[in-house]
């Protein structure tokens, strides 16, 4: 479904991604593992169209996405749940969810979709008329994921969903990620907490200095001595 070939990208004079090739097939859960500054978030930003690649290709169903704006990428069925939640703080949870279905295609059946998503996240339903900014960090993360699901995406990308959350909340967030996976949505996830993500991932890529250095199934990577040494500190 999604394929990256020899992707290069960076910020101004700094090249972050040297050569990134990876693919995500329908129904998979793919994770990108890597150290700080290895280029994980940059990869997601490039896929979303938030960052213009300087080389290589990104294709969705074989179609080159070069030059497409973030809204056009959303149209292709790719949605990102950004790092740090990024809700609209002075709007209600309901309005946040409605904005998740902003594109005309999603807006057409917004009420049905709202029911489907709320069925998946019952705790969000209790908060519908509350201001998003008044929720706790964990609840905000839930709303952010629900908002991403509102677009009925074919591919949902998570950028560090557990960052800055307390351990107890991290556990709840992962339960929700599991629920999204179970609902059949294709997932690409970037996460520091690699033990959990590699357990649920069908495949994983290891990114170092902007290059893919290794790829395998999730559980296999978890057992790999290099991964263990570099990312688990054991």
């Amino acid at each position: 479904m999604l394929r990256l070939e020899g992707l290069r990208a960076g910020y101004g004079p700094v090249t972050v991604l040297q050569d990134v090739s990876l693919e995500v097939n329908a129904g998979e859960v793919v994770t990108i593992v890597g150290g700080n500054g290895a280029g994980k978030t940059t990869t997601l930003r490039a896929i979303c169209g938030l960052l213009r690649p300087t080389g290589g290709r990104i294709t969705v169903d074989g179609r080159d996405t070069a030059g497409l704006s973030p809204p056009a990428i959303v149209d292709l069925g790719i949605t990102m749940v950004p790092e740090g939640r990024q809700l609209f703080p002075f709007m209600t949870v309901r309005e946040n969810l409605m904005l998740g279905a902003y594109k005309p295609a999603a807006r057409a059946r917004i009420d049905e979709r709202m029911e489907e998503v709320l069925a998946l996240f019952p705790r969000v339903r209790e908060r519908l008329s509350q201001m998003a900014g008044s929720l706790s960090g964990g609840e905000q993360q839930m709303v952010a994921i629900a908002r991403g699901m509102m677009a009925n995406p074919r591919l949902l990308m998570f950028d560090e969903p557990s960052l800055g959350l307390a351990p107890l909340i991290v556990k709840q967030v992962f339960e929700i990620v599991d629920r999204v996976v179970a609902s059949g949505t294709t997932v690409l996830i970037v996460e520091q907490n690699i033990v959990h993500t590699l357990q649920i991932a069908t495949r994983g890529y290891v990114l170092e200095n902007g290059q893919v250095v290794m790829s395998d199934t999730g559980p296999a990577l978890l057992k790999d001595p290099h991964v263990k040494r570099a990312y688990l500190g054991v």
């Binding site: 890597g34 150290g35 800055g164 990312y231």
Partner: peptide
């Protein structure tokens, strides 16, 4: 204040 947030285990070390 959270100087380790966002670092990988090796960097944390």
């Amino acid at each position: 204040d959270e100087v380790m947030a966002g670092l990988n285990p090796a960097d944390v070390q």
